[in-house]
Design a protein around this nucleic acid. Structure first.
Lengths: 110, 110
DNA sequence: CCATTAGTTCGACTATAATCGAACTAATCC
DNA sequence: GGATTAGTTCGATTATAGTCGAACTAATGG
């Protein structure tokens, strides 16, 4: 049951986080995790092949946005809300608030 | 004295803004504009060739982060603080606060 | 132990973005 | 009007990212 490496909060790079969240799919993953946490990768997959999903989760993980815990056969993802808040207070909240604003003017079909 | 196109606040894309600010040079431009506004491109140039600078300013302009006004022979840049605040309240402030946090742990020499 | 599930890793390909020199433009100054 | 200043645009090059199939791994369930 080998686990993943996660950066410590001191290692978080603002550029890495902004880059991670500048991708619409990755941002939507974060939004979905805000609503329900933790979640495995599979339900967030949105039709994409597994290798792409794996890549996007790795970007989010390496930036510090989320943590992945291997639980049996599934990989459970949770947002590192406390760590993010400790390192960059208010950042994630502001970005998620902005993401909701953004959806007002550009709603996407289910 | 032709001027530039600037997107209206409703057209701002969160992804575009995050992408614009995910670049260390561009973020530093924004930080410098926070300290002194408006400023021409030249003093922010940091040794890079003019064509690169022009590119980075264009990215910031198209994302909505700053406005460029042609004033005689110089192009004066200012942050679109009100527009940003109207569209994505608190976002820029949170990112700039995070950028200062970031500099705590990774200070760069003058 | 074999099949299944859930996801990773690899490698190739494509797409997007950054970099920079060179030629250009538009306003100012003499 | 020629020179200077400040920046743009173009085009080529390189670098970074995203995409996806195929083979792999690790845990679970029969």
């Amino acid at each position: 049951m080998k686990q993943y490496d996660h950066p410590a909060p001191e290692e978080f790079q603002l550029a890495g986080i902004l880059h991670a969240l500048a991708d619409p799919f990755r941002l939507s993953v974060v939004q979905k995790l805000m609503q329900k946490q933790p979640q495995a990768c599979a339900p967030l997959q949105d039709g994409r092949p597994k290798s792409s999903i794996s890549h996007h989760f790795a970007v989010l993980r390496k930036s510090g946005v989320l943590r992945t815990e291997v639980v049996g056969v599934t990989h459970m993802n949770s947002l590192r809300l406390q760590d993010m808040e400790a390192r960059f207070p208010g950042l994630l909240a502001a970005i998620l608030a902005a993401a909701e604003q953004g959806e007002m003017s550009a709603p996407q079909p289910a």
